[in-house]
Design a protein around this nucleic acid. Structure first.
Lengths: 338, 338
DNA sequence: GCCGCGCCGGAAAGCCCTTGCCTTGCCGGG
DNA sequence: CCCGGCAAGGCAAGGGCTTTCCGGCGCGGC
């Protein structure tokens, strides 16, 4: 790789001058020298070594993002929001997938710290695991103590600014809708119980149902991986155990979509015999048949807000923003059969 | 941030010794000193500055990835394959979204070069734009000349190793299926015509249809953005212009899914009145109703192979691998109505 | 004609880390 | 007893870049 020294030599100037030309320093440089430097840059295909620059400048510009999995539609949307703001402000993103492995999350925080990132955005559900949570917090705090900015999406009680989707409220919306439609035999297809997102959504759901005098026994909840395969399995289990169900609540849309597919395969009419309700309102929700009734979470906005907080001025207090959930009625939920 | 010097000072050793302990150098260090260093590291929450390390060591470890958009399911899958191999080999990925903007692609190549990445993987269709292509090649070659590895996915005629999905063959498979089912009134919902992926798929399709004595007039092809919105618009256009169509070929599954949704909204039976065929076999393809007949491209494998090439030994010759396409018959395509 | 000032360019000091090479101190063998 | 050899640790030289500070030159003013 050509170095600045090479450029300077070829242009017949000092490295200092070359640097000034290349970086558009405010210090004036005579036109002729500037010209020579630029030509040398082009000739040598010189690109500054970003690491050396980072070492020499105090200023940090890259932002680290830790998500469960970018290829999961939920995070794909959130990431789009993050990207959007980052790009606007000329920041490069390093995206890390934790694949829902807490240890990997911890490692990535270290790694990003080592990369001297300007901020870390941690997206995705927290875990019911006090040990992990405190270790993570400890690491984030260490990072924050040296000027790093932290923003989390959808995690309670963490160091740094936070953006929270209204998971509890969303659960309540689902519950309210079920009551309104007269369902009493309800099953839940849930993600891993260790995720706070899952328990939050359940909390809301239970609360709303309780308002209608219904309880949700634990055996009517099936916990599985938070994706299509998990959804298919959990739905099958649930249906086999409780043939009389009139409504299935899936705690995310991926699971809801596979529940729909399974019901269809079994020849069960939706929503005639069984209603299906999802959560998240992923893009696909509107395109499946029947179109999915679900709770919309402003996924892209979640990312936008989080990145905005992370790149904004460091507030004295950690800020918490909650983004609202909204019920989207489509075709997959109807009145309970008589 | 604590530096190595801080650690050394606190442990009462030289930076050299501290470095050796931290990096597990083969050089022996007495247990007591080692102990002191490790404690200092823990006390100070020291994390090595990755940039300084990179400067001091010759070895490069990060890999850069340029895709159109990670949140697009196609690239989400490809990226998953890339990640998988990268993680296995302990490589960090920098993922950049070009959003199908050629200029941004060019910029990202520069940027990644500046980051001293060990390899660059460029995923996603090329463009019919000779000027751009040669500029890109020039940049990639400059990078390759200084020891950088390059792998492209789905682009012809580019510097570096390549992994090609069988787009032409896939098009032929679709064409063959259409002939088999007796369709003669065919419309195509296509992505931007500037993408080589789009023209390749069309080429295959046309070739197969020609084998059955059919031609595909240009006005039966609607070019739009390669996503759901584009698909909806193009499908509507096509249907309005040619009410007699019995089959719609969408050149990717996102477009096919929205075509399905649109037909449903219009009350058209699929495949009774109109058949719909997709391309890519994204995860969602099996879950929509009716389940999508499509061409499976081994998306994850595309990523796996590309990353394997990029991280493997530098071959003298650029290597090109083609991964096969496969027709997946589901429920959205049936015999042409009589 | 001289001084001083402003403008421009360069020398060099870092930024933080790794590592080749040297020093020191100790042991054992001759 | 001396020396060679080895183990253990430190010195210092980079690696590529930015930026402060300084010096030289040319010009204008007195």
């Amino acid at each position: 790789m050509a170095t600045l020294a090479d450029v300077a030599r070829r242009a017949g100037v000092s490295p200092a001058t070359a640097s000034r030309v290349i970086n558009g320093s405010s210090k004036p440089v005579a036109d002729e020298l500037r010209e020579r430097v630029l030509r040398a840059v082009a000739d040598l295909r010189y690109v500054p070594n970003a690491h050396a620059q980072l070492l020499a400048r105090p200023q940090r510009s890259v932002v680290g993002v830790i998500v469960h999995d970018v290829s999961d539609p939920y995070f794909a949307e959130v990431t789009r929001g993050l990207q959007q703001v980052a790009t606007e402000r000329g920041r490069l993103l390093i995206i890390c997938n934790s694949y829902r492995d807490p240890d990997r999350e911890l490692e990535y925080v270290e790694l990003l710290r080592g990369q001297q990132v300007a901020a870390i955005v941690l997206a995705g559900s927290g875990y019911h695991d006090a040990g992990f949570t405190s270790r993570l917090n400890e690491k984030l705090a260490a990072y924050g103590a040296t000027g790093g900015r932290v923003a989390v999406i959808g995690r309670h009680d963490h160091f740094g600014d936070a953006v929270m989707p209204a998971n509890v409220t969303g659960g309540e919306l689902i519950g309210g809708e079920l009551l309104r439609l007269g369902h009493r035999e309800i099953g839940v297809v849930a993600g891993p119980r260790v995720l706070t997102t899952v328990t939050d959504r359940l909390t809301g759901l239970r609360r709303a149902l309780a308002g209608g005098g219904l309880t949700l026994p634990e055996e009517r909840i099936r916990y599985a991986d938070f994706d299509r395969e998990g959804g298919a399995r959990a739905t099958a289990d649930l249906l086999d155990a409780f043939p009389g169900l009139t409504a299935i609540v899936a705690l995310n849309d991926s699971m809801a979509v596979s529940a729909l597919a399974l019901l269809r395969a079994r020849g069960t009419r939706v929503p005639g015999e069984v209603s299906v309700l999802g959560f998240d309102d992923m893009p696909i929700a509107a395109d499946v048949t029947p179109a999915l009734t679900t709770v919309r979470l402003p996924l892209v906005d979640l990312g936008v807000r989080a990145m905005t907080l992370a790149l904004g001025p460091a507030g004295g207090q950690p800020r918490v923003e909650t983004l609202p959930a909204e019920l989207v009625r489509r075709d997959s939920a109807g009145p309970a059969p008589a």
